[in-house]
Design a protein around this nucleic acid. Structure first.
Lengths: 155, 155
DNA sequence: ACAAGATAATATGTGCGCTTACTATAAGCG
DNA sequence: CGCTTATAGTAAGCGCACATATTATCTTGT
């Protein structure tokens, strides 16, 4: 190593937390995709359906609110919710107070599917993080401080 | 809470490691995008350019090998490398031994750009993981065990 | 009451991860 | 030698994250 080809601080990508984060996130997405496949849901569809099911019990949801709750981009939220509507899992009716907005309600089929899918997702999640065993709590704490330390300006 | 709308084990998504992983990965991608913008590179372009620069000093690289080294999907690798070629950062010449393959070499412009970009990426990385301070080492160790515990069958 | 700014939803377009399918060629084996 | 299998690269297409821009409507300040 007389003259390294790149002025990097690390001896390779395997030690870069960002590179590892990217790989792990991809692996997790792959696993989730497989876990959700039997239910005909994509990850985003599941997140929005589950969020709508969970919070729909408490408040009248709009797409903007769902986007905020789920962390999914408003454009993607719009698109995915239309897919969920086409699948008969939710309904998008004109909002009674605000004609700009759509009121989102989960159908019975949507609720039933969400109940089944959430079990599969939590199983997949548990399997994915199993290598960490009891350290998972520590990881969650680290993740939470990363989320806080890297908030977007808005929201 | 007489009857929760979903049979979930957690009190909300904020405690799910998978959900947090997804959010953090998105936030990291956003930051990398901004960091690389001045260099006209996307994340995948940077990874492939840096990998090619790094390992190109040691061996004759093919697209398949680069895909393997970088962890980027072969299809995406093909596509991104053509973009890098169009930008004059790499060259894709027919492989001397194997006519199916392309031999990838980094141009001087590519090497120079990689050297500058890698600094920006490492700065962005450091800033992103700064909230963890010295715990970053611990996180890297956790990430490594997750990568090992969730390998794909192939590779 | 009215103008100015914020907000809800959507159109359009880019890039990427991934899948499936295809061509061409290499490598192994009887 | 010829057959099978594996491999390198590509085409086409889906879904999502994101950026930018548009339309319609709400909200706020004066």
């Amino acid at each position: 190593m007389t003259k390294p080809p790149l002025p990097t601080r690390l001896s390779g990508p395997a030690e870069s937390p960002g590179f590892l984060l990217w790989k792990i996130s991809n692996a997790w997405q792959r696993r989730l995709r497989v876990a959700l496949q039997p239910y005909g849901l994509t990850h985003s569809q599941f997140v929005l359906l589950a969020t709508a099911t969970w919070f729909g019990a408490e408040e009248t949801l709009t797409q903007a609110r769902l986007s905020q709750l789920s962390g999914i981009d408003p454009m993607t939220t719009s698109q995915v919710l239309r897919a969920l509507e086409a699948a008969g899992l939710i309904e998008r009716i004109d909002h009674p107070q605000d004609p700009r907005a759509k009121a989102i309600t989960v159908t019975k089929a949507g609720r039933d599917l969400a109940r089944k899918a959430v079990v599969a997702v939590e199983d997949a999640d548990a399997a994915f993080f199993k290598p960490l065993a009891s350290d998972t709590k520590r990881l969650v704490a680290m993740f939470q401080s990363l989320v806080e330390g890297n908030e977007r300006v808005d929201e």
